[in-house]
Design a protein around this nucleic acid. Structure first.
Ligand SMILES: [Mn+2]
Ligand SMILES: [Mn+2]
Ligand SMILES: [Zn+2]
Ligand SMILES: [Zn+2]
Lengths: 150, 150
DNA sequence: TAGTAAATGCAACTCTGTTGCAAATCCACA
DNA sequence: TGTGGATTTGCAACAGAGTTGCATTTACTA
């Protein structure tokens, strides 16, 4: 069953189904790990760590730590999610809801280390790189205090 | 011997001496670790890792790994250097040569993971944060390929 | 309904950085 | 110039995050 982008049911609230559909639409293999983890990430509004994912998956399905790492790596490679590292040197993952979500800024709380994606953001790339350097992407992180930590 | 900023000898090419002067000027304790490590960082034009520092210090002075970490932490706390983490989850350190060097961008090579500080850079902070969020600093990283890796 | 390539679980491992504690060192003050 | 006492250093052990190898299980294709 091949599904076109336009045929995506807007009332498909079940994220497990949505995750499955996203993966199948790209012709990739469906596995419990991919479904559960992507569904979990689709439900989050901020970038979450490996630990947080593990925590939220408790009760739903039990995965080995390594499987979780490997699924996250795969989701990142295939472009379903993106990954970023903040000052605590821990990977954080977030689903790529929109196609154009590669270029966006992040907010990082200096106290609770929470990371939020700032989707609506304008970046002006007028800077001069050293000779011979080639820019591929620009990452902008705003550091400060979140609403809970002010 | 208290030295004023303006009395800094512009012909003081010996970085060991310069490092010592910087630390003494702030009334902090002089130790071999601080002198050698700060001098090494003053000689670099890019942000370097713990490993690279260890490597460059070979022959000059032998320090324990832990001492190196602790000196770097101290230099960062006191504002002699700044620290950043890139996609490989490794700390990189760079001397704060100029007073205003807190706000500047970085370039990170996607192939060799080298990090270069882009000192001459204009940042425009016109973005909207979620309600209640407070911005303290903005970090901008340009990712791409360096001259050697293009 | 096989056959096969890919995904998973488990154990052991690496890499980066941290902590506790005793020995060495720096420096303010006598 | 010599000392007391807080700081810094070295060493060993530890911790957290992520990786690798390999046998077993699973998903898809034919
Ligand atoms: Mn993001
Ligand atoms: Mn820098
Ligand atoms: Zn916070
Ligand atoms: Zn490079």
């Amino acid at each position: 069953m091949q599904l076109c982008c336009k045929s995506t049911n807007p009332f498909l609230v079940d994220l497990q189904k949505k995750a499955e559909e996203m993966i199948r639409h790209r012709g990739e293999r469906i596995t419990p790990g991919r479904i559960h983890i992507l569904a979990m990430l689709l439900s989050e509004r901020r970038a979450v760590t490996h630990h947080e994912i593990e925590e939220r998956l408790k009760g739903k399905h039990r995965f080995d730590r390594v499987t979780l790492y490997r699924v996250l790596e795969w989701l990142n490679e295939k472009g379903f999610v993106h990954r970023l590292v903040s000052a605590d040197r821990v990977w954080r993952f977030r689903a790529n809801i929109h196609e154009h979500s590669q270029q966006h800024a992040h907010f990082e709380c200096l106290r609770c280390t929470k990371v939020v994606c700032l989707n609506d953001f304008e970046t002006t790339h007028d800077f001069a790189l050293p000779a011979g350097y080639r820019s591929r992407e620009v990452e902008l992180t705003v550091k400060g205090l979140c609403a809970e930590c002010v």
